[in-house]
Design a protein around this nucleic acid. Sequence first.
DNA 1: ATAATAGTGTCTCTTAGACAATATTTC
DNA 2: GAAATATTGTCTAAGAGACACTATTAT
Lengths: 224, 224
Amino acid sequence: MDPFPAAVAVDLVILTVRRSALHALVVERGVPPFRGWDALPGGFVRPDEDLLTAARRELAEETGVGEGDLYLEQLGTYGAPDRDPRQRVISVAHLAMAADLPEPVAGSDAAAARWSPMAELVDGRLAFDHADILADGVERARAKLEYTTLATEFCPDPFTIAELRSVYEAVWGTELDPGNFHRKVLASEGFVEEAGESTTRGGGRPARLYRAGPGRAVHPPLAR
Amino acid sequence: MDPFPAAVAVDLVILTVRRSALHALVVERGVPPFRGWDALPGGFVRPDEDLLTAARRELAEETGVGEGDLYLEQLGTYGAPDRDPRQRVISVAHLAMAADLPEPVAGSDAAAARWSPMAELVDGRLAFDHADILADGVERARAKLEYTTLATEFCPDPFTIAELRSVYEAVWGTELDPGNFHRKVLASEGFVEEAGESTTRGGGRPARLYRAGPGRAVHPPLAR
DNA sequence: ATAATAGTGTCTCTTAGACAATATTTC
DNA sequence: GAAATATTGTCTAAGAGACACTATTAT
C-alpha cells in the first residue's frame, strides 16, 4: 500500500493558573473554516522540523514566551479523516504549562488570542476536534500533578506552599487541607527547596519562599 | 505557512508474555531501507482511515488476531525529519497487549514475523527509530500495570492469581511476594472475579480460576 | 485584641511488606 | 511423607486524613 500525502500540524494546549482558576490559551480564527470560532493555537510543521521543535516554535509565536522556560510534552495525535474539511490533517497535540503569562500576542493566523477560563470552555464551542484535545490535555495535567512535581511550573519563581496548593486546587477543582498539604510537599524529596526569605502576599503570617527542587517525581504521590 | 505533504504510518508495539518472559513482535524487513533488519510491524494509514482503525487493521494483518480481542492504545508520535531516509514519515505508534498469541503471520511487506524476547532486543538493532518506540512502549506498559487492570489482557481466559502475578514479574522484571500480591489483587474492587473451578497447572495445591473483572483501575495501585 | 494565614503536633485508621502458618495437591 | 504451590494470618512500620494547636503578621 502506497502512502498518501497528509498535512502535519501541531496544536497546543497551553494551561496556566490565573487568580486561582485554570485557564487555557485560545485563538479566534480569522480565516475559514470555523472563522470566528475559538481554537487551540497551532500550525503546520515545517519540512525540516522535529515535532517538539515545531510545538516550541508555535508556543513562542503565540505567547511570546522564550524557549526553555516552560514545560512542554507531547499529548497525543488526532487524525480522524474528516477532522479538517479542507484536507487530511494529522495534528500532533502538545501540552504546555506555565506560570501566569503576559497577555498573549496574536499569531499570523489568529485574529485574537486570549486566556479563557476552563469554566467558559467546558461547553464553549471550539473549532475542529479541539474540545476533545483540550479535555485530554486537562486530564493529563490533572493526572501528572499527582505523581510529578509539575505544579511548580505554574508558580512564580519563588513561591509559597500556599501558592503551590492553590495550583493543585485550581487544576483539580478540590479543596486541600493546608496543613497536610504543607507536610506532604516538604516530605517529598526534591519537590521544593528553600529560597531565602519570606513574604506576606496573603493576609496573615508571612510564608517562607521556595523554589522548584531538582526532583521530578512526588514520593509518595499526592491524592486527588 | 503552507503545509507540506508527509506520509502517515502506524507502527505497533505488540507485547505478550510467553514462558514468563516479555516478548515483542518484530518483522524482518524484506525491502530497503534496512533490508534484513528487524522492525516493528506497521504500515501506512489509508486515506479514509482513523489512526486507531489503521492500527487495528495492521494488528490483524500481522498477528491474525480478531478485532476487539486485545488492548490497543495510542503510544506516541515520532516525526523526526530524518527518521525515514526515503521521505518524511510521521509514525503514530500504538501499544497492544495480548495473551500468548499464535505464531504470527507475515504481512505483505515482511519477510518474517516472530516473537522476540525483550532480552534479545535490548541491544538488538531495530530499523529506523523503532528501538526508541519499543522502549517507550515497554515503559508505558510497566507504568500501566501499576494502576490499571491491564495485566489481565496478558492472561488466558480463566487464569490463576499466580499466572497474573507472573505477568507482573515478567513485565516488571522483579519478584513479588505471592501472599501479598494475592491479597492485594482480591482487595482491588473489580480487578478479578471468580470463574468457577480450580486447576493445577503448577505442581502444588490447585488454584482457583478467575476472569478479568469490570474494573479498569487498581485501587490502591500495585507498587513496582 | 481579633482576624487571618503559616506551620506543627497528634491521633486514628489503613495499607505495605516481611514472613509465618495452614491447606491441598502430586510424586 | 516430602515437595510444591495456594491461600490466609500476623506483626510492624509508614502514610493519609481529620483536626487541634501554636506562630506571626496586619488592622
